[in-house]
Structures are given as structure tokens and as C-alpha cells.
Design a protein around this nucleic acid. Sequence first.
DNA 1: CTACCCATTGAACAAGTGTTCAGTTAACCT
DNA 2: AGGTTAACTGAACACTTGTTCAATGGGTAG
Lengths: 202, 202
Amino acid sequence: MARKTGSDGKKTATDLRAAATALFAKHGFAAVSMRQIAQKVGVQAGALYLYTPNKQALLFDIMQQHLDGLLGAWETEKLPDSATPLAQLQRFVSFHIHYHLDRADEVFIAYMELRNLLPENLATISETRRRYELVLEGILAAGQKTGDFQISDCKLSSYAIIAMLTGMTTWYRDQGRLSLAEIEQVYQGLVYGAVSGAKTKS
Amino acid sequence: MARKTGSDGKKTATDLRAAATALFAKHGFAAVSMRQIAQKVGVQAGALYLYTPNKQALLFDIMQQHLDGLLGAWETEKLPDSATPLAQLQRFVSFHIHYHLDRADEVFIAYMELRNLLPENLATISETRRRYELVLEGILAAGQKTGDFQISDCKLSSYAIIAMLTGMTTWYRDQGRLSLAEIEQVYQGLVYGAVSGAKTKS
DNA sequence: CTACCCATTGAACAAGTGTTCAGTTAACCT
DNA sequence: AGGTTAACTGAACACTTGTTCAATGGGTAG
């Protein structure tokens, strides 16, 4: 046996990414072997090296593709700069929730496996992530300027809000107690309250 | 060479926990070998098995000790139930921030290595964590009842707040732009706003 | 001084690791 | 029909993995 009937390099390449993503998310990068991935793809381990130079590159590609997709999707879904900061913020919250829930595995990997990246790859990924954080930071700063938001520190607040939103992926389940629309409402309220300041000062 | 001069079982046992904690946090459970841990302790790998039955138990012990310590510390630091919900919440935020920042490695492990636990161990850990989440959920429910807080869903809000606070550990550095006291102020404000509702409804 | 225990070594075990490569076959092109 | 290329196998490489255990020497009580 060598080449299989109906084999297709393009398909195997995407299957590889999909299998690796699922396994890395479930067990962690270091705990998954190339042979496990190969089995999931339905191929011998050696064949994987036609589609990735090595295991590390596989991890890096998955992360980078995810973050590029995230930034790209935001560019097409964001409101124009002329919109009010509050409207932009609401759009961001909604976008972040939906994009992340639809890609729970990739999100998990992008947040958990940073320490398994080579220093050079880590630098690239960190920079891309920083660009995304700056999106929210920019919205907060705009609202701070117009007086719509009461924020003591835009950078910290953006970190806090992103952490809060991303945390959803760890507990969200389809068929849970609340619908996704209800959950989004709760989070919109929390974020709105956090940036608007409270009625009375403590 | 067999026994070393000045050797002490009690000390080696605590050294083992410390070394494993540091290494697991830095590289991840699966990426760290017993030989690496042994080297950090200053001992051969075989000797570790006098102090832990296996690698898995080592991970479980570290997590369980951390979560038990967290719950225990809260019991001694929390305000009496007679205190106002807002005061209790502020105490919780302050406690959570300080306790977690002082134990960045343990926190990291407790959140990242859940998937490397055996199912039975995972169940135990999850239950302990749930008890901690219920602390905050209880405070929020109390404030909801008195009307001090405007919260649409206590469970979700507790998840969101804990995620927001715990996220700090991923970026906080001593000697950063802001002092810890300043950071705490920012977070107190964000949490207060989130639970108090905003001035105007969107 | 002797006997015992505690703490440790160092080698060994079987299994698994990422990665390479000569060989083999299916699919496509002429 | 024949040749070329793309896709893949299966074995091999040198190492690392978690874990066990007989052997060994320091520390201490009698």
C-alpha cells in the first residue's frame, strides 16, 4: 500500500488542521503526538510532514490563522468610526461573543498554548493579539473623550472586558439554562455598567 | 553514593511541590518530565516516588491544596454576613486580586491543567472550585435581594466577574505602569459599575 | 560498636517521541 | 500505453517518557 484511492492533498491538508485543532484543544499541544493526529486524519504519521514542516509550525499556523481571521472578521463587521462609542462597544461585545463561541477550540488553543510557542513565534502571535486588544482600547478611549464612558484606565479596562467575555468559552454549552441571546444581553449589561460608571460613587 | 549528607524527607517533599509548581506553570504539565523536576529538586528521578505515587497525583495535590487554601483564606478574611452586600463584594474583589497575584503559578495551573486530570480528580477539583464561585454568587444574590445591585443573572455575573479578575494574573507584572493599589481601584470601579447598573438604560 | 531505618542512587524497563526516507502505488498527462 | 508526479506507507533513527527496584550509605538509637 502506498497512495490511497481518492486521495487528495488539499483535503488532507485541511483535515490535518482540523484534527490537530480538535486534539490540541482537548488534550493540550504537548500531550498530543503526531501519531494521534495522523490516526484522526486516517493516515500514517510520516505523511503529515508533506503538509507541515513540524509540530511546532502546526501550532503556530493554527493560532495565526485564528487571530488573522478574528481581526479580518472584525474589519468587515465593525461599525464606521462615525458611530457613537456606545454603539461601537455594543457591536464589539456582540461580535466577540459570537466569533469566539463559534470557534471554541481555536480560542482555547490561542490562549492556552502560548507557552509552547518558540520565542520568535510567540512574538508574532502576541503582536497580532495586541492589535485586537487595541480595537477595544480605542473604542473605550473614544467614549472617554466624548464623555459617554466613565473609565479610569482604558488599557486595563480593555483587558478586563476581554477576559470577561472570553471566559464564556469555558462554561458555555448549547442547550444550557439560558439562550445565547439571553447570555449576550447579560454581558451587554455588565459591560455597559462597567464603562458607564455607577449611579453613586462608593 | 546513596543517601546524601543533610538529607531530610520533609524538606524534599516541600521542595518537590515547589519545583513541580514552578515548572508546570512555566511549561505545562505534559511538557514537564519527572527528570526535569528531579533536577530542580537536586535529586534523581526515582527519589521523587517516595513523595508522590505518580505524576498525576502531583498535579492533583497542587491544585487541591491551592483551592483548599483559597477557600480557607476566604473564610478567615470575609466580612460577617451582617455586612452590606456592597461591602462584602468589595472585600471579595480585594481578596481575590491579592490572593491570586501572590500565587500566580498555582492559579495558572489550576485553570490551565484541568484537562490533564483524570476524570475522578477533575470531579473533585471542579466541585471545590464551584464552592468558591458560589461565594460570589451568594453575595450578588444578597445584593439583588436588598436592591443594592441591579443584576439580571447572578450565576452568569459571578462567572464574568471572576474571569475578569483572574485575567489579571496573565498580564500583571511588578514594576508595571500602575501600582497594585491603583489597579485594584480600577477593578473595584469596573465591578461596582457592572453590578450597580448604569445611569441610563440603553 | 552494632543494628536499624531513612533517603537516595543508578540502572533498567517497555513504551512512546518527533522526524526522515526509500519504496510503492493511484491519478493524471501526453 | 507509457511516463511523470502526487500521496502515502512502514520501517527506522536516536531519544525521552513514567515508573520500579536492588543496592548503598548517612543518621541515630541502643
